[in-house]
Amino acid sequence: MNYRKLGKTGFNISEISLGTWQVGGKWGDPFSHDNADRILNEAVDAGINFIDTADVYGDGESEKAVGRLIRSRSERIYVATKCGRRLQPHVNEAYQPASLRAFVDDSLRNMGLETLDLIQLHCPPTEVYYRPEIFDEFDRLKQEGKIQHLGVSVEKVEEALKAIEFPNVTTVQIIFNMFRQRPAELFFQEAQRRNVGVIVRVPLASGLLTGKFRMDTSFSAQDHRNFNRQGAAFDKGETFSGVEYETGLAAVDELRSVFPGDTNLAPDALRWILTFDAVSCIIPGASKPEHLTSNLEATQRPAPTSEQMIAVKRIYDEQIKNPVHYLW
């Protein structure tokens, strides 16, 4: 495993880390603690030392599983969680310092911890990034020892750029992959200038970039890849990175010729992300141990050649950019 600095937190974290949206089972299925325990422990055994969760994953069950892992292992494992998405309705006006403080207390209780290494605002409405009182509250929580660092999880580059104007924002979690390349422009430059850690989520475009999906691939009724393709439940960009399914399949077909001989494109897609120095870590998910194994193969792959980098950019520019680039 290779390790990188998580910005001004100073944490030295595994460049391939673990997101836990679906770690308890497949998306939409009931949370399985046995499955979660197996995947989490195998991740740590492989050298992963940074785990990202959220209070809404499995309605708190993911946090409980992560907390159980932290307490059962001797290794230093950094845990990041998120708050805000439990607000109903999830609107700017619902974001209040007292509510966020209560969410932090709930996460500490769920995980059985005295302090959180990293708490992240969980994709709040854009207006929240213009309210200093929200960010000030986390300074107080840090003074009280309840959190070590504040980060944000964003939908849009615009939100990321605004968030890092606040000096106490140490990390930004953002969607970045072969089908979502805009962050590599101004945002990565500004993040490096301000020593802000960059956590990449949805690195495989909800599985599209594995190369394993076909036109007739079916997803369960509870799977967001079935019901959220047009943003029915949450931001459309979280599902297939906002790319229309058929468009994504066509682009993946072209990517197969760029990385010939690889039936599983996931390691290539992850390794491509790691060529960007601004990236601190990637947090692909895993609903079973073999997904974890596939993700970790990226650390053994050579960097893409300059010809491959150019080809990936060409495919993006020709097939993906126009409908996606300017929305997020």
Rank of each mutant, 00 (worst) to 15 (best):
A303R: 01
S153Q: 04
I283T: 10
R101K: 14
Y316P: 06
I51A: 05
E159R: 03
M215F: 02
V157C: 13
D235K: 07
Y245W: 12
I164L: 15
I315Y: 01
S206H: 02
R101H: 07
R314N: 08
N195K: 13
D55F: 00
D139I: 14
S32F: 12
S220R: 14
E158A: 15
I282D: 03
F138A: 11
R314C: 01
S32I: 06
D29N: 13
N12F: 06
A163K: 09
E159K: 07
D235Y: 10
Y316W: 14
Q88P: 00
G211T: 11
T170H: 15
G237K: 11
R86D: 08
G242I: 02
F259S: 04
D52Y: 11
D106F: 02
H122P: 03
E93K: 15
S294G: 11
N168S: 13
T9Q: 08
R182E: 10
E75V: 09
C123Y: 00
T126D: 12
D216M: 02
H33G: 00
L327A: 09
L118W: 06
I147D: 04
Q148W: 05
D117W: 08
E137Q: 15
F50A: 07
D105N: 13
G151Y: 10
R182K: 14
I283S: 05
L100K: 13
S17P: 13
L274G: 02
R314Y: 02
N49L: 11
V56I: 15
N110D: 09
G151R: 10
D268Q: 14
L141E: 06
E42Q: 15
A184I: 05
S17R: 09
D55T: 08
Q181C: 00
P97H: 10
F11M: 14
A278K: 03
K162W: 01
I16V: 15
Q181E: 00
C281K: 08
I16H: 07
A160Y: 01
I51P: 07
I134K: 09
R271G: 06
